[in-house]
Design a protein around this nucleic acid. Structure first.
Ligand SMILES: [Zn+2]
Ligand SMILES: [Zn+2]
Ligand SMILES: [Zn+2]
Ligand SMILES: [Zn+2]
Lengths: 133, 133
DNA sequence: ACGGAAATGAGAATCATTGTCAACCCGCGG
DNA sequence: CCGCGGGTTGACAATGATTCTCATTTCCGT
């Protein structure tokens, strides 16, 4: 109980960690660790794959990232935005529309509470065929 | 139109497929392909791991199984009830509660239509910490 | 029963993720 | 300012679920 128990055991700052954080800050889309690694290197930012995983894990542990799994099991990460929303994706052309709705938010919240669940998070993805496809 | 000709290319029935279906019918819990494989063999029911995966994929394709991913990316399957629903999962003990709500269904539908999307599907996962954890 | 197509199974191959461990770097004490 | 200790990194090996390969077996219509 003593010591710096409270909050995040601050990680020692390094170039790599900043790079990862910066890269995540440049997009609102979900990216996989592999993609992020490739992107960083592409931007002339040398970093090891294992380090990318470690940074992502660290950020996720502190709750700064949203993590979800694609259908084929790959983990994808996104910087938690203060502005919570979901995506409507076209299964043909990939067009993505951001949608937000208090309706679904409160529904999820109430459903969870109703069953005694705490610290609730949710993942919602709506997939369809867009008007032009 | 004419029977199920257009839809599901009916799979040729075999002992293995029946065994997999039967095993899935014996439990309400989610099981991984590996677990199912072990269980089947344990019950003196010889079957190849690849076949288990194939059967599961086939069943899931026809919509007879609910599939979801554990935090570590492993796919788990469960025979699903005929009705559409979603899952409330405990991030600690894995306890799963089925939830259904016209609220969220119509919300998803309207949001999609509002943007001109057709043939809409959605994925919703609510994760939290259950009362006993 | 016969023949061809579908299904199976053992093992190899794939691929994201994690573990290993020596080299490296950052902040602090001297 | 300089050197040390321990957190951090990175190349590579290891893991483990899932998929692929292909020879063999099984099912089904004829
Ligand atoms: Zn489209
Ligand atoms: Zn939401
Ligand atoms: Zn629980
Ligand atoms: Zn639904």
């Amino acid at each position: 109980m003593t010591g710096q128990s409270a909050g995040a055991p601050t990680r020692r700052p390094t170039r790599q960690q900043l790079a990862v954080a910066a890269a995540l800050g440049q997009t609102e889309d979900f990216v996989s660790a592999q993609q992020l690694h490739a992107r960083l290197r592409g931007d002339g930012n040398p970093i090891g794959l294992a380090t990318v995983y470690r940074c992502l894990a660290a950020l996720a542990a502190v709750g700064r990232l949203d993590v979800l799994r694609t259908d084929d099991g790959e983990a994808v990460y996104r910087q938690c935005s203060t502005d919570h929303h979901h995506h409507l994706v076209c299964r043909i052309c990939g067009r993505t529309v951001e949608v937000a709705g208090p309706t679904v938010e409160s529904w999820a919240e109430s459903v969870a509470r109703e069953h005694g669940f705490r610290d609730v998070r949710h993942t919602i993805e709506i997939v369809g065929t867009c008007a032009t496809c």
